[in-house]
């Protein structure tokens, strides 16, 4: 058993356990913290697969930004009152349905692609002409050439979503005094710098 195999089992065991804890802990803040642990272990598995760029991006985007916002929202909740009303059976049917859909999708994918586990190297490197580059370069050179349109398009969609949410929440309130920095800085004539001689003082 090599070190990478041991670490793989370690990461995936923690990943599975923590994702189980995400849905089974009563406290929503603990759920989010376990979710973060799951993300981190997923990143660890990416590193074992030599996909270090994806691993780092996963941590930066999901753990460093998205999960922080999750945690922000969840921390504000008054979860002590919501806990009592919680009934697991209430959500059971829809949860089972979604789970079944996911399993069905996975099975269909696995049946349709003849999975050859003896050739795992090809599976983790589906594009063979990038073997001499680091995967950051490989992702960059394929994302900004072959898929530049989709890349730009998804960027624009995100921008539209961001502008939309700002427009929806922005409201002009009456009687709000705003700080206008340029006016504060530009106040010549109203302020002056004096050199005061010691012992004499000045008249104001």
């Amino acid at each position: 058993m090599s070190i990478s195999l041991i670490t793989f089992y370690l990461f995936s065991a923690i990943l599975l356990l923590s994702s189980l804890m995400v849905i089974s802990t009563k406290n929503p803040v603990h759920s989010v913290l376990f979710l973060i642990l799951a993300f981190l272990n997923a990143a660890g598995i990416f590193v074992i697969l030599h996909a270090e760029f994806l691993a780092m991006i996963l941590i930066i985007v999901y753990v460093g930004a998205v999960a922080v916002l999750f945690l922000f929202v969840v921390m504000m909740l008054d979860f002590k009152t919501s806990l009592e009303k919680d009934n697991i059976l209430q959500y059971m049917p829809i949860g089972l349905l979604i789970g079944l859909v996911f399993i069905a999708e996975l099975v269909i994918v696995l049946i349709n692609t003849r999975l050859d586990l003896s050739n795992i190297q090809i599976l983790s490197n589906p594009l063979d002409n990038f073997s001499d580059q680091s995967n950051t370069e490989a992702i960059g050179s394929i994302l900004y050439t072959n898929y530049v349109l989709y890349f730009q398009l998804s960027g624009v969609i995100l921008l539209v979503a961001m502008v939309g949410s700002i427009v929806l929440t922005l409201r002009d309130r009456e009687g709000v005094k705003r700080q206008i920095v340029s006016e504060q800085v530009d106040r010549k004539g109203k302020i002056e710098l004096l050199d005061v001689k010691s012992g004499e003082g000045i008249d104001l």
Binding site: M56, V63, L71
Partner: peptide, 16 residues
Amino acid sequence: NVGILYIFAISSLGVY
């Protein structure tokens, strides 16, 4: 290879 991203990732975890 991704040293600077690693540091960026780790320091973004510091908030937790």
